[in-house]
Design a binder for these strands. Sequence first.
DNA 1: TCCAATAAACAACATTGTGTTGACAAATCA
DNA 2: TGATTTGTCAACACAATGTTGTTTATTGGA
Lengths: 201, 201
Amino acid sequence: MVYQTKTGEMIMKKQKKEDRRVKYTKMVLKESLIDLLSQKDISAITIKEICEEADVNRTTFYAHYADQYDLLRQIEDELLQNLKAYITVFKQKKADAIFVDILEEMFEYIKANAKLCKLLLSKEGNLDFQKRIMMLVYDTNLVAKPNETLKKGEEEYVYSFVITGCVGVIHKWLEEGMKHSSRIMAGMIINSVKNLPVTFE
Amino acid sequence: MVYQTKTGEMIMKKQKKEDRRVKYTKMVLKESLIDLLSQKDISAITIKEICEEADVNRTTFYAHYADQYDLLRQIEDELLQNLKAYITVFKQKKADAIFVDILEEMFEYIKANAKLCKLLLSKEGNLDFQKRIMMLVYDTNLVAKPNETLKKGEEEYVYSFVITGCVGVIHKWLEEGMKHSSRIMAGMIINSVKNLPVTFE
DNA sequence: TCCAATAAACAACATTGTGTTGACAAATCA
DNA sequence: TGATTTGTCAACACAATGTTGTTTATTGGA
């Protein structure tokens, strides 16, 4: 058996091993769904449609995804993973970055992927995606050090408040065509939360 | 023609005129969908299923709703309208109610409808519903008087921040089985927002 | 480079859900 | 009661679904 090595290696191999055809297929299917999503709700999109637009056989679709929702989920995954990687790289490159810098960078990334982000956060969007953004923020330790004045158990609620609040602001920013700069938006959030019983970074 | 009167009267009549049979049909269909929603995602629920569970002919379903999503939307509508009415009545009954009282009452209402609220805010839930809750909060003037220290345009973002933040807190509260009392939750939100550049009531 | 193993893509299939139609029965309300 | 509305049912054509076995492309080792 080739794969009887360390888990890490296995995963590495699996990633590299993706067939050119598979790569292409997945790419066009993703593009097709994103395109259709800008026209109508995911529930109104059929697999037949996605495949016709992508010029891929329907059977091929089923070989990779269970349904439209599964495909969307993987699109979301990709975006979130890329964002995470982007922030990680930024943190390494600029070790002295403070919270506002990282937030600004986050807004920049969202801006660069505005079309997709807007779709995923649109009114037809899924609450699960919002939750996963929250988990990401949580994981990357953007929000930290709950104030000691808080009772135990309360801090979790303040976290929820802040993170969902941030998502709401991002959403509004996208909807209004990103009129303000990333720096201004980052500053606005800092300003909103600076008096909350949590501190950052 | 009977209905050639003032628009107001027409609507009144239309509302009152709902047939008992129609009422029953709509009721069982709503119950059926809510029941199915606790088992699986709305996208996996077929109209056939809903009708079988409700023991209603599929044709009858189509007489009232376009699809599952339309039915769900109307369930949401009903919940939001009832909440709005509930708060309005409370405000009239207790004219000296301050913000924390109204918030508490809101949590009480959500608690009384916990099963449905939880479903609608679950990870499969729709962002549109969240947005409509926000509109409701906005309409009932729960959040008011933006601080004059804010630049124009910024206040809107703080609104978004606060309201989505609140929804996040409600969500977490429901998910964790409503361990804290409504009063405590209301206090927690007040505590979170009291230092924000907005005031309440 | 070539060959064999592997996996992807495809066309055709039966199945299922959809949404609509028209005829009929039951319930409503004035 | 009698006119009207609404629900029911059977049947319909249609479209989307998910699975079958077969063909074709890619990869990695000799």
